[in-house]
């Protein structure tokens, strides 16, 4: 893996990097093309975010070597992810669930 720094292993890694690079380029093109599809807004957002998440995960796992990273860092990132989701969901959740809506349907 990436912590094996023998020349053969590094050269093998380099081929992986180039493969990921290709995948990212394809992902970018697909995102742009998908945005011209005539689908509903919700589906469009869903598609774009799925592609972005895949691309982001590729960068994180391969370029940033997360797939072979130490447990300490993964644990921290997992916690961060939890709070990130909290930060994304609760404010909008509150905007959608208001008291005035409850009393005047």
């Amino acid at each position: 893996m990436s912590h094996d720094h023998s020349p053969e292993a590094v050269k093998k890694e380099v081929r992986v990097y180039l493969g990921v690079f290709g995948a990212l380029l394809v992902g970018t093109i697909v995102t742009v093309l998908a945005s011209y599809l005539k689908v509903s807004t919700a589906l469009g957002i869903f598609i774009a975010l799925v592609i972005a998440t895949v691309k982001g995960s590729l960068v994180a796992c391969f370029f940033m070597h997360l797939r072979s990273e130490k447990i300490m860092i993964l644990a921290f990132l997992l916690l961060m992810l939890v709070f990130f989701v909290v930060l994304m969901i609760l404010p909008i959740g509150m905007q959608m669930d208001t008291f005035t809506d409850n009393i005047s349907p």
Partner: peptide
């Protein structure tokens, strides 16, 4: 420490908060 991230809106009960979130 963990829980302190998910209690913040108890400062905001006056902001027209719905029953579920509240």
């Amino acid at each position: 420490g963990f829980m302190s991230f998910i209690v913040w809106a108890h400062h905001m009960f006056l902001t027209d908060m719905g029953v579920i979130i509240s």
